[in-house]
């Protein structure tokens, strides 16, 4: 059982108290995706504005716990200005950090693991403690799964 300080790092609490990129974007031209955690009723809305291959703007709506809110906030800061390809690589790296136990069980694909290691998680590293509290992993990955839907939609339309 990790201590509270390990789960709620200062940077996590900072993003929770002062979430970045809160708001909405006009749809269209932006894409809107909704994520839902039926277990706790958390809701995330992700707006992505894609020009060519680049995510030029991101906004986050919805409500949820500190972990889901700070993960969404950090995600928005990390993917803004990145290409769709980079955002997807970051998503893979983040979800791999969250599911560290499962990948160890399944036998990690060495090539994929190397690719994930090459992606710099930066502030998102602060959420590493969540991986050790299984019931909260879904909170942390909610915004990322929602982003993936939004990007799928953007690419399907492009």
């Amino acid at each position: 059982m990790p201590g509270l300080e390990d789960l709620y790092r200062e940077i996590v609490l900072d993003h929770y108290r002062s979430p970045r990129n809160r708001g909405e974007l006009p749809v269209p031209p932006s894409h809107r995706a909704e994520g839902f955690n039926p277990l706790c009723g958390d809701e995330i809305v992700v707006y992505v504005q894609v020009d060519g291959d680049t995510i030029t703007d991101v906004k986050i709506g919805g409500q949820g716990c500190s972990i889901s809110q700070s993960s969404a906030s950090m995600m928005s800061a990390a993917i803004k200005g990145k290409t769709i390809h980079e955002a997807r690589a970051l998503t893979r790296a983040f979800k791999s950090m969250m599911s560290i136990h499962e990948t160890a069980l399944e036998g990690d694909d060495p090539e994929m693991a190397a690719a994930n290691l090459a992606v710099k998680l930066g502030d998102l590293e602060a959420l590493r403690g969540v991986a050790r509290v299984p019931v909260r992993i879904k909170c942390a990955t909610l915004s990322w799964n929602t982003l993936a839907q939004g990007l799928d939609e953007a690419e399907a339309e492009a």
């Binding site: 277990l39 706790c40 958390d42 716990c65 500190s66 509290v133 909170c139």
Partner: peptide, 29 residues
């Protein structure tokens, strides 16, 4: 303004077991 998940997480650290969620009563929520 704490989310119930965060409340129950901290309470758990103190050995206090409380539930967080909609308690199978979403229309009431």
């Amino acid at each position: 303004d704490l989310h119930p998940h965060d409340i129950s997480q901290v309470l758990d650290e103190h050995g206090v077991c409380v539930r967080a969620g909609h308690h199978c009563a979403k229309p009431l929520m």
